[in-house]
């Protein structure tokens, strides 16, 4: 039964290439954080990055929406293409790019504003609505996609910081999808949540796959196995192995992957 489910997901996971990274290197000052990583990420698929702490998986994730630009000492080389367009080109506006590539962070970080204003924030700054009714619709749609509409529809104007941890994280996901991104990056989105909230968010990630290319960084191998179709294993700045999730977990090619999966390193 469990295997059938995985098979099914693996089948639907074979889609067009959404993100294509070639020879990406990242340096933090003197430190070589990412070494020659090349990877192709499919559309409408959940791709998980796993690996021990400090292996560079979050750093690589932050290359995809150029969040590393906000760090002064970070330097990125190589090319990353989204839909064939090179986003590392200096002519690409990182601010525009980030509207297209949404990001959800490790710790839920709702703004100290109302639930409504949290979700409306992105659409407002990108001028996505013609009027108030339009904006109301966008907010409702985003909250529904974030699977939190039913819980907050009666208190849209209460502060987002008053929600529980799991609700806050789903609110942040709703906030990210409100700008209609094509790619959703998630940096350990469940590490600050309890098991029940984690289960809810994981369910949501699976639903989001229908509309977006989702890339998730996680510490938990069980989580990667549960939610992803493709998995990349990072170790000390190298991408060691990349392939179908089932294969990585059942039949890894690289001995380092096998050691990590079986708990010998990491």
């Amino acid at each position: 039964m469990e295997d059938m489910y995985h098979m099914d997901r693996a089948m639907t996971g074979t889609q067009d290439i959404k993100i294509s990274a070639r020879d990406v290197n990242v340096y933090y000052g003197e430190k070589h954080a990412i070494k020659n990583v090349s990877v192709e990420i499919a559309d409408k698929t959940v791709t998980a990055f796993i690996g021990p702490s400090g292996c560079g998986k979050s750093t690589f994730l932050r290359c995809i929406n150029r969040m590393n630009d906000t760090i002064d000492i970070a330097r990125v080389t190589g090319n990353i293409l989204i839909d064939g367009e090179d986003i590392t080109d200096p002519r690409v506006d990182p601010v525009q790019l980030r509207a297209k590539v949404g990001m959800v962070f490790q710790k839920p970080n709702p703004f100290p504003k109302s639930i409504y204003d949290n979700v409306a924030y992105g659409p407002k700054i990108h001028g996505m609505s013609r009027n108030k009714t339009d904006l109301d619709e966008i907010v409702e749609r985003a909250l529904r996609r974030g699977a939190i509409w039913e819980e907050v529809k009666d208190r849209l104007h209460e502060p987002g910081t008053g929600l529980s941890g799991g609700q806050q994280q789903r609110l942040c996901i709703a906030r990210a999808v409100a700008t209609e991104p094509e790619v959703l990056l998630m940096d350990e989105p469940c590490s600050a949540l309890d098991p029940i909230a984690t289960a809810q968010v994981e369910e949501l990630i699976d639903e989001l796959r229908q509309n977006y290319s989702v890339v998730i960084v996680t510490h938990s191998m069980q989580q990667a196995a549960r939610v992803s179709q493709k998995t990349a294993f990072f170790h000390l700045g190298d991408m060691v192995e990349y392939g179908e999730t089932d294969k990585i977990f059942t039949n890894p090619e690289d001995p380092r992957t096998e050691s990590y999966i079986s708990g010998r390193i990491g």
Binding site: T70, V95, R98, M103, F105, N109, F111, P112, A176
Partner: peptide, 18 residues
């Protein structure tokens, strides 16, 4: 103000002054 607020905002495509 926590750095998470800045990250969250720029992650949504806001400029620094926004």
């Amino acid at each position: 103000v926590p750095q998470a607020m800045r990250d969250g905002s720029s992650g949504l495509g806001a400029t620094h002054s926004e």
